[in-house]
Every structure is written in C-alpha cells, then in structure tokens.
Amino acid sequence: MTDNTQGQAETPIAYTALTTGTAVLDADGAEIGTVEHVLQDSTIDLFDGIAVTTANGLRFVDAGVVGRITTAAVHTTLTAAQAEALPEPEGTEVFDADPEEFGGNGLSAWFGRMFMREHWMRRND
C-alpha cells in the first residue's frame, strides 16, 4: 500500500528497517516526535517498542500501539492526549541468563550448557 502523506510516498517496512529520525505520528497524523532507537531483541525477533525524541524529552512508545511502519513515518494508534502522557524510558536494562534454560539431562540442555545460548530474562532487583 502506498499513501501520500505530506507529499511523501509511504512504503510499508519492518521495524528492523526503521532509522533514527523517522517521524512518529499519533492516530490523527500529528507528529509526536522522531525515532531515537528501536527496542528489540533480534535473536528472537521481538519488537518491544520505540524510544522517541519529543519536545518533552525521550519517551517510550510500546509496540502494542504501533499501527504501521512505513518509509516515511511510524503511525501509532495513540490519541493526542495519550501521546502527551507517554512515559519516559525506565532505568537501565540488566539481563541475566535464564538458569532453568540449561537444567535437565536432555540433549537441548547439554547444548545450552556447552554453548551458552543467547536467551535472556530481565533481572528483578
């Protein structure tokens, strides 16, 4: 699908193709800010959301409110009021290996212990 928003042709793209500085729009097409970076775990193809530079500082847009991503913009389902109330990103991300991942006597557990798989879980401290 190709639209013509603000004079630019829009081609749908994956979150992995998003670039810094891409416009982020609310549901009415008003600009919220621009993409600072994408929050993802590429090892398991997980899109968590987008850190957005706004007039009020850095804000977090959850993947659940991203409607579509195009070459011209990230279109969200946020209302203007929701966009204004976006949260700041919280803390620094600290991850630990999942200790149960390598438990057991099976072949999969052995490979996990031997080659340290890259599955991680958030530490709760």
Rank of each mutant, 00 (worst) to 15 (best):
I44P: 04
T77K: 01
I69R: 02
E10Q: 11
R122C: 01
L107M: 00
L39Q: 15
A72Y: 11
R68Y: 08
T5H: 13
G49V: 09
S42P: 07
A14W: 01
Q82H: 09
G21R: 08
T43E: 15
E93A: 11
E101S: 12
S108Q: 00
A85Q: 02
E118H: 12
L58E: 15
F102M: 05
G49A: 07
L18G: 10
V52K: 04
E84S: 09
M121R: 05
T92V: 09
A55S: 09
A97T: 05
R117V: 01
G49C: 06
T77F: 03
T16N: 06
A51R: 14
V35G: 05
T70H: 01
G7P: 06
T70Q: 06
G64F: 05
G57T: 04
D3R: 09
T11E: 06
E88H: 12
A27M: 05
P89L: 13
D48T: 11
D3Y: 05
S108V: 00
E118D: 15
D3Q: 08
A80C: 08
L25F: 14
P99Y: 09
T34F: 03
S108G: 00
P99S: 00
A83L: 08
T76L: 06
L58V: 11
G33V: 07
L39R: 15
E31F: 02
L78I: 10
N4L: 11
G67F: 01
D98Y: 07
T16V: 02
D62V: 01
F47A: 11
L39T: 15
H37V: 08
V24L: 05
T43R: 14
T79S: 07
F47M: 11
V38T: 14
F95E: 06
P99I: 03
L78Q: 10
G21I: 08
H37W: 09
R59M: 07
E93V: 09
M116F: 00
T5S: 13
M114Y: 03
D28T: 13
R123K: 11
A83D: 10
T11C: 03
G29R: 06
T22I: 10
A51V: 15
M1K: 05
A23Q: 14
A63V: 03
G103E: 15
G103C: 13
T43G: 14
T20Y: 14
E118C: 01
E36K: 12
T54M: 05
T76M: 09
T22G: 08
D98H: 06
E36V: 06
M116H: 00
F115A: 02
G33M: 06
F102I: 06
T71F: 01
